[in-house]
């Protein structure tokens, strides 16, 4: 049975039999099937969200009973007037800007290249995907070694090219975030790569054959067949990537701890520190609500842009 049967009365009326059956006997088992998931969903998502919104208006401390004294908009005022909060929000955005374009474009490029390889395709697929299955802790260790000032891999390579005393990547405020972004691109490109590869293999070969007969160059084939045929995949990849990048936490926590200074402190880092190290759940909740609003705005904006594009097309 399809979703419209339930939500659209007009359609449902034309299928009275099904609808009746739904009402009479099926809803109970349906609810039972949903229940285990719903329980966890309410317990670990809905309830914490409500708690977060409520706590954001109180001086809630993790080591005190209850919500604590009423703060009104005090927590929001503190966050909105606090330079560290804005810098953390900016760093989150900065990371998203640094990582999303390469993770989409490079994944697309590598997928096309890997798809064209005739021999050893499995090896290339594996090579691009393997970093993704490593835990963030392992990634952080590998890249911390690469970035080690003076004796790390990068410093040695820079030495070959005559760069003496290169700035330590993770120790220099202006480039630390770039270092983390490069790490992340290497780490997570495999996921987008696989999505694109799957999309590529769904494109019928006949299209390319027909285009080749008409004299289309390989570049023209990519431009007029591959890219349009993959537009749905691209939409998905971009959305997933933006959301994933806005959730940046692990790499920063493990590689720089937000440093040097607060040069790489991101929104989730600030929230975690406020809630669990400073014990200030109220203030952290206010910051979470603000981040939540930003993510909703970005998601809605993207949806609107998408719709506008579809209408044009």
């Amino acid at each position: 049975m399809s979703a419209p049967t339930i939500t659209q009365p007009g359609v449902a009326a034309s299928q009275p039999l099904r609808k009746d059956r739904m009402r009479a006997g099926d809803t109970k088992p349906a609810w039972l099937f949903i229940a285990p998931f719903a329980l966890f969903y309410v317990l670990f998502l809905i309830w914490p969200t409500i708690y977060m919104v409520v706590a954001s208006f109180f001086n809630t401390s993790i080591v005190q009973e209850g919500f604590g004294s009423f703060a009104g908009f005090g927590n929001y005022q503190e966050m909105l007037t606090r330079p560290e909060f804005w810098s953390a929000m900016w760093h989150t955005l900065q990371f998203t800007i640094y990582t999303t374009p390469p993770l989409v474009v490079l994944a697309f490029l590598f997928a096309i290249l890997a798809n064209r390889v005739r021999r050893g395709q499995a090896l290339f697929r594996l090579a691009f995907f393997v970093p993704f299955i490593l835990p963030s802790a392992a990634i952080a260790l590998i890249w911390n070694f690469i970035y080690t000032p003076a004796s790390g891999l990068l410093a040695v390579v820079q030495g070959w090219f005559g760069v003496e005393a290169p700035s330590p990547v993770l120790g220099t405020p202006s480039i630390a975030m770039v270092g983390i972004a490069v790490t992340t691109v290497w780490w997570t490109i495999g996921f987008n790569f696989i999505l694109y590869l799957a999309g590529l293999q769904d494109i019928p070969r006949e299209l390319y054959e027909a285009a080749a007969l008409d004299g289309a160059t390989p570049w023209q084939q990519i431009r007029w067949i591959t890219i349009p045929m993959l537009s749905r995949t691209t939409t998905l990849v971009v959305l997933l990537q933006i959301i994933a990048s806005l959730k940046i936490f692990d790499q920063v926590y493990l590689m720089t701890g937000g440093g040097p200074g607060i040069a790489t402190e991101v929104a989730l880092g600030l929230i975690t520190t406020s809630a669990f190290t400073d014990f200030r759940v109220g203030a952290a909740s206010a910051a979470s609500v603000l981040l939540f609003i930003v993510i909703v705005i970005i998601a809605v904006l993207r949806q609107l842009i998408d719709r506008a594009q579809e209408r044009r097309a």
Partner: peptide
């Protein structure tokens, strides 16, 4: 200046303990 600004936030915050 940076220390002052960052520590100031903590100094102004009600002690959560």
């Amino acid at each position: 200046a940076s220390m002052r600004s960052q520590l100031g936030t903590y100094a102004r915050t009600a002690d959560p303990l």
